[in-house]
Design a protein around this nucleic acid. Structure first.
Lengths: 115, 115
DNA sequence: CATATTAGTTACCTTTTGGTTACTACTTTC
DNA sequence: GAAAGTAGTAACCAAAAGGTAACTAATATG
């Protein structure tokens, strides 16, 4: 059930980066949290099609990695708020560049993929 | 066998970026081809542990996306050389920033992952 | 006493991604 | 005539990632 997240510190830095952000949701969560705090449920609603299970797992992993902060209030019903750390914020301009870059790949994307 | 690579142009740009580089090998291949041309076999040797099948598939996809150029020579035995397009090269500085960013995430990575 | 509300968790399943092994075609060299 | 050398491809598998649906705890409200 719980898989260890043991990372090799001598690992290739680009591999390491991809381990962090190279999945379907992490960078979208970072974008969603840009300049604001959101509750778990708000994130689940705003991020189209993410499942709560995966959202919970991603947030946990991102917290471990020091990208988000989780603040939990002892209220009923519970309230948990997520926001970016400074590290999370430093990711934003890089993601912006990536977006800009990917946008000017114009191509005939009806082609095949054979992975 | 062949899955269509039909991309939605109105797709969230960060999702689009992740579709391009968010996998185990694409950005490593980009790094390997920085400032040089390499043959298929050289890439397979230099990129530790990649399988030839996946390397061939990635290169094909990257060619479609306009990131690499494939030059094939009608010799025996065959010679095929890969190099970066200008677009591929424009990815390099962004990947460098990503590496720099990921390096200063220092953490106790013996923690758990429950994805 | 039933219902609503929130932030998850659990068990189970499907899809996607990547890996392994064996094979091909063509020519040169031994 | 056999072996070497290159750039793949095909069939088959294993692992990882992500999705679905049902469920929980705790209190307030009607």
């Amino acid at each position: 059930m719980a898989r260890k997240l043991i990372e090799n510190p001598n690992e290739c830095p680009i591999t390491h980066s991809m381990n962090i952000i190279g999945n379907k949701w992490t960078s979208i969560i970072v974008y969603m949290l840009a300049n604001r705090k959101l509750r778990f449920g708000e994130l689940a609603i705003r991020i189209d099609k993410i499942s709560r299970k995966v959202l919970a797992n991603q947030l946990k992993e991102m917290e471990l990695r020091g990208i988000v902060i989780r603040e939990s209030y002892a209220e009923i019903p519970p309230r948990v708020e997520y926001s970016l750390t400074e590290k999370g914020e430093r990711l934003l301009p890089i993601l912006n560049q990536l977006c800009a870059w990917s946008k000017d790949i114009e191509l005939d994307m009806t082609a095949e993929k054979t992975n």
